[in-house]
Amino acid sequence: MITLEFVNVLMGLMMAGIAIVNLRDRTYKKRYNNAAFWGLYAVTFLAGSYLPNVVNGLLVIAMVSIVAVGKLGAAPPEQATRAEREVSAARWGNRLFIPALTIPAVALLGTFTLKGFSVNGVPLVDPKQVTLISLGLATVAALIVGVIMLRPPPSAPMIEARRLMDAVSWAAVLPQMLAALGAMFALAGVGPIVAGILERWIPLDTTFAVVATYTIGMALFTSIMGNAFAAFPVMTAAIGLPLIVHRFGGNVVTMAAVGMLSGFCGTLVTPMAANFNIVPAALLELPDQNAVIKVQIPTALMLLAANTAIMYLFVFR
């Protein structure tokens, strides 16, 4: 059976390749720092499932220390000049889109079809992880299509992956680090403590106050945790169910659905939701790491107001 370990091995191999390209780049100042950072990250993918947890913890601390003490180097320059790329673009035309679109096409195909296959009664692919494994397979398929079509030098894909990865730099690891922080918050019982504070300080005796506290609280708590999924159980157990549904007789479906969407408004405004907000800023090489958040703030605020209105108007019907 293909499990998530397949994706981990792919990630580990790619990170190891990026570390090696860095190490071999003699003109690059921070090559040892970058190589060590991506090399350690590769170890967490390749060996993480077999190492004791405390060793994994120390590996991550070592990665963070490299960033804190030695700093990582910036993205290396592009290998092909703009003129070369223009010529190549004219030569290949719209065929260049084929490998790029292979990723979503194969990912979708895999998600829909792979569930059905089994060998001797054992499913071919872990049914719970079909989407992620399909995405992993899709990237491999797209790379194969790209290499067959374009016939680049064998080292080109890894050198280009390294260029992009070093452009994103430490931000590539931030979403995973935040997920780990969320797990530590859960371990320490942070959620219930915050909900307790909210309940104690806000007067909740009118239906509007309750609805607004719930929607705004979802958005605020999501922006602290970086994730509406972490905020939902806490806020709904503290305010949604006991007050909106049980005391004021609101509709549980409307409360829950619109409550979650209020949380998503919080996701739009917080650097804690790094994979949506900070990572794209790095990936698009924007000088301001909060540039994407700044664009999203007006929409998030208006949409939060809209959500509050929708819930207030419909939840008590």
């Binding site: 990630m11 790619m14 790329r85 190549s88 995405l135 990237t139 790379l143 790209g146 894909p157």
Partner: peptide
């Protein structure tokens, strides 16, 4: 991030 090798390759090709 597994998409980066092919995306990088395509960027290099224009």
């Amino acid at each position: 991030w597994l998409a980066l090798p092919v995306i990088g390759l395509l960027e290099r090709t224009g």
